[in-house]
């Protein structure tokens, strides 16, 4: 139907700060435009430091924040035109969020499985209690959990990493076309992080879900994303194919980010020999100097 899954044109968001007399305007997002194609699902990484506007941009795509100017169109739906609750449901069916802090995404007083079954009830076509349990369990299995572990549990009973996996499972239940993930793995256990990152790849390849991956971690962005967008102070300073941008960054800010990556490239080359015991020590010469 539509060629573009997401069409963002010249979107800006300004926040006002201060009182009546000394009012300051802060441009959190400044004239950002980009598109995601509908036919070819992809992972787009938005990278930037805190305060660069990447989260504000993500929140605008999720229709949590209204842009000051510009237009966002998701799969034919103009976000500014969403008024009725039906339109909202249709919109939420297409895009689902994963937030950074899972402790904030779940109400601490409510059981976790309630969220999963509620989402399932709202979005899935197939009915039936048994089918609901199976699909909730399926979604949880995809993120390395099971319904058995989550049933009747409260958020405080799980670790941050486990909670985040529940959040991802919940997003999957809506069968969305686009997932907006704001720093989704920064709180996930190291031994499971790569599984989650690989899961994003599987979602893209097998389920055809596009993912907007907001992060400050260049290494995982390089690993999973097809395209990359570097933001600084609300503006996109560099964008393009992830490999091209990160191998040969053009903008000074991208280079600065690139240099701040702690596992250095010299070590990476040696580590490229993927055998488990062939890993060289990154940073060793610097430390023992």
């Amino acid at each position: 139907m539509n060629d573009l899954l997401l069409d963002i044109s010249e979107v800006s968001k300004t926040f006002g700060r201060g009182g009546l007399l000394s009012r300051q305007k802060i441009a959190a997002v400044n004239q950002v435009s980009f598109q995601l194609a509908a036919r070819r699902p992809e992972i787009l990484a938005i990278i930037g430091e805190s305060g660069s506007g990447k989260t504000t941009l993500a929140r605008m795509i999720l229709n949590i924040e209204t842009p000051t100017s510009g237009k966002l169109v998701l799969d034919g739906i103009d976000l500014a035109a969403i008024r009725s609750s039906d339109a909202r449901m249709a919109f939420m069916h297409k895009v689902q969020p994963i937030f950074q802090n899972p402790f904030e995404s779940f109400n601490p007083l409510k059981r976790l499985d309630r969220y999963l079954f509620m989402t399932r009830r709202r979005f899935s076509r197939a009915a039936g209690e048994g089918a609901a349990e199976t699909s909730v369990d399926d979604a949880l299995q995809k993120v390395g959990l099971s319904l058995q572990e989550v049933r009747h549990r409260y958020p405080h009973e799980l670790s941050g990493g486990q909670l985040q996996r529940v959040a991802i499972a919940r997003a999957l239940l809506a069968e969305p076309k686009l997932i907006v993930a704001d720093e989704p793995v920064s709180m996930i256990d190291a031994s499971l992080r790569i599984s989650i990152v690989n899961l994003f790849k599987t979602l893209r390849d097998d389920l055809g879900i596009s993912i907007i991956y907001v992060t400050h971690d260049l290494a995982t962005a390089y690993y999973i994303s097809d395209r990359i967008m570097i933001m600084q102070k609300g503006c996109v300073v560099e964008s393009g194919d992830a490999r091209t941008v990160l191998r040969a960054p053009q903008h000074p800010y991208t280079r600065q980010l690139r240099e701040a990556v702690l596992l250095t490239e010299a070590a990476d080359v040696a580590a490229g020999v993927s055998g488990m015991n062939d890993l060289t020590s990154p940073g060793a010469p610097e430390r023992r100097a």
């Binding site: 499971l192 790569i194 990160l246 990476d268 490229g272 993927s274 488990m276």
Partner: peptide
């Protein structure tokens, strides 16, 4: 340096080998 060069425990080996690195496109196993 030794842990990164020569991790011995299977868990450590997984931890080190699953680190994504810029410039390295080999798939990482979860």
């Amino acid at each position: 340096a030794e842990i990164f060069r020569n991790p011995l425990h299977p868990y450590t080996r997984h931890l080190i080998s699953s680190l994504p690195r810029i410039g390295d496109d080999t798939p990482r196993e979860g």
